[in-house]
Design a protein around this nucleic acid. Structure first.
Length: 1053
RNA sequence: GGGCGUAUAGCUCAGUCGGCUAGAGCGCCGCCCUGAUAAGGCGGAGGUCCCAGGUUCGAGUCCUGGUACGCCCA
């Protein structure tokens, strides 16, 4: 190294141990000030009809709380992919979206307003209630923006979309009308958990709240029905036994169901035959005492038989009172024959519907029998159980009456037991275009792939009609107006504000309830003028709204028609795997029904973030590190890399520990190596006043190696990112960084302080070019750190405004890369031999021999082995047999199919060494001849030498372990150099300081050190070298050399 | 109960079309190296590839049946 001649610095002074969070905040501030995000979009043209756009849809989150790791994970993926495609030259617009409507918002408002239930809301006032929802729903929006911005996710918050916007809701209305006009909307009934006490249906979510499902004691009754006589009954009356824990549903019984493959016993007692599940007979030992079994029937043999209605209320109901087949029937509880009341059970409804039996619901909103069941009219159904059982007894049909304790859902508000009850609901006729969805799904690239035909594909195949109405307040109202007099029926469906204004003659500025409910008009089809058109009171399922996001976010078709034409489908969406039932599905339903297109082309489904024990993250348990704390202590890029490099984006789960140690490891293993390479470059470039330029034509072997290796990296990362394999891209970068820092830079170090300006410039230019390229490659994965390094190197505004590196600007040289990686393998092996023979690396050895067929090809790289292994000479030898013996290794993949069972004999002979190489290059073994392409000859090291084969088995490394006195002396010299360098560092000298050295040596080493004094002085930059004690004030340390004590002093000379 | 997924070193995970002695990173221990790197190199300990059958010359890999866990649905 030469002394710097008043150098000009071209690069910033880089802190070797910086605070990455502080760097990140600096970059974020600069982005905000310079509008870098917007520039990254603006500088990419959309192309003709959007041909150069990459379409990203942001799934709207519901902001009723702070973002958790799931959102953060999704957010990172939503940033990495658009950044990558932006660098690839695409225009990638990103708008943030908010899911505003729905039950979570209503429940939150109920809590805040301290009101509970539908009636309470109506009393409070729907207008005031919805006003509250409107303001509370975006309460956390600011926090969301803070998190999202801090994690370096680029997304447009100013131009966001909200599902409660007037324009958004109008587009949703339009979509509904489209479906209606296509005949895809109908009114039906749906059995739902229903709280009669709160007079409201509950969502599944609500039935699972807290401890609302808990044990309850109910009556369980077994009742017999009289089967209609058929031929083969022998004139004997047949009774079939059914069992239920809800006797109040028996008046609504319309059918019974049996399992087609279940065995049913026929028992006879006193001239009557009883039919029940064969496996359940024992339960009725007492009731059927004395009966004898006279036959067995399969369920399918009972199917189709009629029976007498138990009660007269619905005796003339069409298609009712028959035995139906149902797969879900079992013999666990009851009799193996299931009572069906389709108004009060979902299974019952499905089975009956399939057999043309309409439902009956003789129970009003408050859970009391209606006039249809006159005997108990006005009585709460649960209270009616007792009198009904009494009646069954009187009718002589009650076989058994027990009590039964089971887990039963309760209303979380009123604590009363729920009932299941059919309610009117509006449906999308998904079954009509289900097959088309299945077809379109095949055009979608799912990550991971199995989702396409697995979780999502199966769900599509089994799709049922979608119940889209909710008997609630805060949502997009269903735009259907009905006549309030069935005598003059009429239905109007509206698809725009203009249509509403035309018919109702008012200006519409809000589509929410209750304003829209006030729009009424006389029924035009009613000549009497008495009836009125009124809106059905339901609102839409909020999933209908989020599924409308592709068009509703731009108020299509009222605006942006041309834009929308080329913004469907999306190129990319990403959410967690459960959205196969949620957003992915509703996008698919609406995309298919409205546009006959798949709504997205690539879809990442990620897994779930868990704590270190595999438990769900829980706010209450606080079993995870606070994200904002991670941002500020470790860094947002580290967290990004931690999440993006894990298998979680391939659908797996990810455990995150409370201390965030996995995140800290990222800094150590990924960010530090990049940073240190940057630090190394700027440190010496500044010392030397060197300015590097982007050049990839250095002829130096190490330069060519790292340039070719970088090209391979760019190619491989491009392939991985194009396949949305983000974790794979991360892995490629890590492997590459090892070669960069621990081989290229380490082995190139001396060139950076070479006296030869052109050697030096080549090294600087190459390292610079490689680092600039790396910044671009990792820009999507470490957007903040890469920005800092890129800015320090190039002074350019942003790495995110740069193009993705073109690999053809880097030289390709796969042979060199392979040879170099082989040399690294040789060094590892040689160092292992040193270890094995107790020869420290600083002790030079006479030589190493590399014997192998391809040895000659390593000639140009031999000097690297020489310095890395610290030997005087490297011999390359093709004389394999001097150093090793051949081992036959047959190509099993090729020979297996050819030899079949004989493989075993051949392999046995190979193992015992029982084979011969023939003159024509083939091998004779166990009576077979192997052609040259059917085997390889590998090398095994010879006994008695310090030798070892490479892992590839085609080269043997032989180390000369003979230590001469000369070598030993040189070893001591190097030991001393090391100790002086250590002392320099301890004394905090600058790397360029010239120093004085004084040593007090053991007698045995003195001659050795004197011989090599020149070398030592050169290595440690010593202008003065004394034997004996150092001057006053020098930094002095005691150590040992050759096992003897040694004192050494250093001072700045 | 059904569907989908997962199961490989103490931990986190690779393992392609069935083919050679099952790998990597982290952690631990020892040695080495250090003119950027809280780094690096080498070695060691650590494996019933969840279990049982089957197909095959050959199975971590394919098939069948289980078990455990996760997610979704009932």
């Amino acid at each position: 190294m030469h002394a710097p001649q008043s150098p000009t610095k071209h690069y910033p002074d880089v802190d070797p141990r910086p605070s990455f969070p502080a760097i990140e905040r600096g970059i974020l501030a600069r982005w905000a000030a310079e509008g870098t995000f917007q520039k990254s979009i603006d500088q990419r043209p959309a192309g003709e009809n959007g041909s150069n756009e990459y379409i990203f849809y942001d799934g709207p989150p519901f902001a009723n709380g702070l973002p958790h790791y799931g959102h953060i994970l999704t957010g990172y993926a939503k940033d990495v992919v658009p950044r990558y495609f932006t660098m690839r030259g695409k225009r990638v617009e990103r708008r943030f979206g908010w899911d505003c409507h729905g039950l979570p918002a209503e429940l939150e408002s109920e809590r805040e307003l301290e009101i509970s239930g539908r009636q309470a809301i109506e009393t409070y006032g729907i207008d005031k209630f919805n006003d509250h929802c409107r303001t509370s729903v975006l309460k956390y929006a600011g926090e969301w923006e803070r998190y999202v911005t801090r994690m370096a996710r680029w997304v447009d918050f100013e131009n966001d979309y909200k599902t409660m916007d007037l324009s958004y809701m109008e587009s949703v209305m339009w979509a509904f009308k489209q479906l209606y006009d296509k005949g895809l909307i109908y009114e039906g009934h749906r059995v739902m958990p229903y709280s009669w006490a709160a007079e409201t249906p509950l969502s599944n979510f609500e039935t699972r709240m807290d401890n609302s499902t808990r044990p309850r004691q109910d009556p369980a009754v077994t009742v017999m029905l009289t089967l209609a006589p058929v031929d083969g009954d022998g004139g004997v009356p047949h009774k079939i036994l059914i069992w239920t824990t809800t006797p109040w549903t028996l008046p609504s019984n319309l059918a019974v169901a049996v399992g087609p493959d279940i065995d049913y016993a026929v028992l006879e007692l006193e001239g009557v035959r009883y039919v029940l599940g064969a496996a359940t007979v024992a339960k009725f030992e007492k009731e059927l005492e004395g009966a004898t079994q006279v036959g067995t029937l399969k369920g399918r043999e009972l199917v189709g038989r009629g029976y007498e209605p138990l009660f007269p209320f619905f005796a003339n109901h069409p298609n009712a009172f028959r035995v139906l087949p149902a797969e879900f029937v079992d013999t666990e509880d009851g009799t193996g024959v299931v009572h069906m009341a389709p108004g009060f059970g979902e299974d019952d409804q499905l089975i009956c519907e399939a057999h043309g039996i309409d439902i009956v619901v003789p129970v009003d909103d408050s859970g009391r029998f209606t006039s249809e069941v006159a005997d108990w009219q006005g009585i709460n159904v649960l209270e009616a159980n007792k009198p009904i059982i009494k009646r069954l007894k009187e009718l002589g049909v009650l076989v058994k009456h027990e009590s039964y304790v089971h887990n039963y859902p309760h209303c979380w508000r009123t604590d009363e037991p729920l009932i299941y009850r059919a309610l009117s609901s509006w449906y999308v006729r998904v079954t009509d275009f289900r097959d088309r969805m299945v077809e379109l799904n095949q055009e979608i690239n799912w990550i991971p792939e199995h989702v396409r035909d697995g979780q999502f594909g199966k769900w599509l195949e089994g799709a049922r009609d979608w119940s889209i109405s909710r008997n609630r307040f805060w949502g997009t109202p269903i735009p259907i107006w009905q006549s309030d007099d069935p005598t003059y029926p009429r239905i109007d469906v509206y698809g725009s504000i203009a249509e509403l204004e035309a018919d109702f003659g008012v200006e519409v500025t809000d589509l929410h309830r209750p304003f829209i409910d006030e729009l009424t008009r006389p029924n035009p089809d009613d000549p009497t003028g008495q009836s009125t058109m009124r809106r059905v009171t339901d609102v839409l399922d909020c999933w209908f709204e989020s599924g409308s996001m592709p068009f509703a976010q731009v108020h299509y078709p009222f605006e942006n028609q041309e834009w929308f034409d080329h913004h469907l489908p999306a190129d990319y969406i990403v959410e967690y795997i459960a959205q196969t039932r949620g957003w992915f599905y509703t996008l698919m339903v609406l995309g298919t029904a409205l546009f006959d297109k798949p709504p997205f082309l690539n879809c990442s489904c990620h897994g779930v973030v868990l704590d270190e024990n595999g438990q769900k993250l829980s706010k209450r348990l606080r079993n995870y590190p606070d994200p904002e704390e991670v941002f500020e202590t470790i860094g947002a890029d580290a967290l990004r890399w931690f999440l993006m490099s894990s298998p979680i984006l391939r659908g797996g789960d990810l455990k995150i520990d409370k201390e965030g140690s996995g995140i800290g490891d990222v800094v150590r293993l990924v960010i530090n190596p990049i940073w240190n390479a940057y630090y190394f470059f700027t440190l010496y470039a500044n010392v030397d006043g060197v300015q590097a330029s982007f050049r990839t034509d250095s002829k130096h072997l190490l330069d060519r190696y790292i340039l070719a290796k970088t090209r391979a990296l760019v190619e491989q990362v491009t392939t991985a990112m194009d396949a949305y394999d983000i974790a794979g891209a991360c892995q490629l970068v890590v492997t590459y960084l090892d070669a960069l820092t621990n081989w290229y830079i380490r082995r190139s170090r001396e060139r950076f302080w070479s006296a030869d300006a052109s050697i030096k410039q080549d090294a600087y230019d190459t390292l610079y070019s490689v680092l600039v390229t790396i910044c671009k490659v990792v820009a999507p994965l470490l957007p903040l750190i890469s920005e800092e390094v890129h800015a320090g190197l190039t002074g350019e505004e942003s790495v995110h405004l740069a193009d993705w590196p073109a690999f053809d600007q880097l030289p390709a040289d796969p042979a060199l890369v392979a040879d170099m990686d082989r040399v690294r393998d040789v060094c590892s092996t040689a160092l292992a031999l040193r270890e094995e023979h107790g020869l420290r690396t600083r002790l030079p050895l006479a030589g190493v021999t590399l014997a192998g067929a391809s040895a000659a090809g390593l000639e140009a790289l031999a000097h690297l082995v020489q310095s890395e292994v610290n030997v005087k000479a490297v011999q390359l030898s093709e004389d394999l047999e001097a150093h090793g013996q051949f081992v036959l290794s047959p190509d099993r993949r090729a020979l297996g199919p050819k030899l079949g069972k004989a493989m075993k004999d051949v392999l046995a002979a190979v193992r015992s060494g029982d084979w011969t190489l023939q003159d024509d290059g083939s091998v004779a073994v166990a009576g077979y001849t192997l052609a040259p392409e059917e085997f390889e000859l590998n090398l095994k090291p010879k006994e008695g030498e310090a030798s070892q084969a490479l892992r590839t088995n085609d080269m043997v490394v032989v180390l000369d372990v003979d230590v001469t006195p000369e070598l030993e002396a040189e070893g001591y010299a190097r030991d001393l150099v090391r100790k002086i360098q250590s002392a320099r560092k301890d004394a905090d000298f600058k790397v360029t300081d010239r120093i004085g050295v004084a040593v007090t040596l053991p007698a045995g080493c003195l001659a050795a050190i004197q011989t090599h004094e020149g070398y030592i002085r050169e290595q440690v930059l010593a202008t003065e070298f004394r034997y004996g004690p150092g001057p006053e004030g020098a930094h002095t340390v005691s150590d040992t050399l050759a096992g003897e004590p040694v004192a050494l002093s250093v001072w700045v000379g």
